[in-house]
Design a protein around this nucleic acid. Structure first.
Length: 346
DNA sequence: AATTCGGGGTA
DNA sequence: TACCCAGAATT
């Protein structure tokens, strides 16, 4: 017996709705796994409208997986600048090298092989398998999670049951349009707030709607408070150049360039603490001049307030690299440091 | 199982 | 503001 209520009707209703209402997106005009792969990585935790221009530029810069594998990581990070979650770019680049070196040019088309590539988890693998190869693999992104937990009134936060439902709902031989349909429904109709239930092709079967509270699903995690971090940063100039440092290759904003900066505990005498920090950690004497301004940036797990000071170097530095102001735009930088660069470039 | 990873769209 | 986005990797 079929454990999924209304399975056949859900399939036909959703597929018909998708034929008439599905989104026309750049990565849907191909079955080539490479651009589909790139799009799926970019789309992780990132909205479609944000991804589209990055996707277009990225494929222009790296038209094939071989172009990507040959490119310097710095170029890849530059193409990713502003998109966030930079480990995605590093993993994509690393995976492209694995593809060229170990997979003999054949794009992996099984779940197990895809999961061996860095940056590809179960959902991204399912998307690639269904969109590029039309294989019956389930996806479970934020959209699908919301749609399924509403239709079947799943109130637990366990993803296991949702994975099973997602898998057993796929119509034989039609995983490509069906998975896209699930995503589009979640994005266009079954929205987090004020879902458009009257226009939903599944409203007759939706248990959350029958319970008259679709927004109760999916189960909301209690989210903890995000710490607020204060920091100071130094724009140290000398002969038309500024001193930048590069972040470690892994971890937070890994591999990006930035103006030297440090957390501050108290809020007093920021200029003096900045001077001392530069002396201790960069082995250089500076004179702190005027404040350039205060910048704020909200990250996923903390908020940052950064006070930036104009500084003048009084001698050489043992760390960092002097970059001509006119060439700052060539380096990959995080959003907040790009803002600083744009302030001083004029 | 919980935390770490960016930045922006949207109400 | 708060919530969430075609999640994965690490702890």
């Amino acid at each position: 017996m079929d454990p999924i209520p209304h399975r056949a009707k859900i399939q036909t209703k959703l597929l018909r709705w998708f034929e008439e209402n599905g989104r026309d997106l750049p990565w849907r005009n191909t079955r080539d796994p490479y651009p589909i792969w790139v799009s799926e990585i970019m789309l992780q935790q990132t909205q479609v409208v944000t991804v589209i221009p990055y996707y277009q530029r990225f494929l222009k810069s790296f038209p094939t997986v071989y172009h990507l594998a040959r490119a310097d990581l710095s170029r890849v990070l530059k193409a990713w600048e502003g998109l966030g979650y930079y480990s995605r770019a590093r993993n994509l680049h690393r995976a492209s090298k694995m593809f060229v070196n170990h997979l003999s040019g054949k794009f992996p088309d099984s779940l197990e092989s895809l999961l061996t590539l860095p940056g590809i988890g179960r959902s991204t693998a399912g998307a690639i398998l269904s969109f590029a190869f039309n294989k019956e693999a389930p996806v479970l992104d934020g959209n699908v999670k919301r749609v399924l937990s509403r239709v079947f009134a799943i109130s637990t936060n366990s993803k296991q049951s949702l994975w099973k439902i997602s898998e057993s709902l796929i119509p034989k031989g039609r995983s490509n349009p069906f998975n896209q349909a699930l995503m589009d429904l979640g994005s266009m109709i079954c929205t987090p707030k004020d879902p458009l239930c009257p226009r939903c092709p599944l409203n007759r079967f939706c248990e959350a709607r029958a319970l008259r509270d679709p927004e109760k699903y999916p189960f909301k995690e209690v989210k903890k408070k995000i710490p607020h971090v204060h920091a100071v940063s130094a724009v140290i100039q000398k002969n038309g150049r500024v001193l930048l440092t590069r972040r470690p290759p892994k971890g937070f904003l890994g591999g990006l360039w930035e103006f030297p900066n440090w957390k501050t505990e108290g809020k007093k005498r920021l200029g003096l603490s900045l001077k001392n920090r530069v002396k201790r950690e960069m082995g250089m004497n500076i004179a702190v001049r005027k404040s350039i301004g205060t910048l704020n940036q909200a990250y996923s797990h903390f908020k940052l307030t950064l006070q930036v000071f104009h500084c003048q170097s009084l001698d050489r530095s043992v760390r960092g690299k002097w970059i001509p102001v006119q060439k700052l735009h060539l380096l990959p930088m995080s959003k907040i440091h790009r803002k600083i660069a744009e302030k001083i470039a004029y």
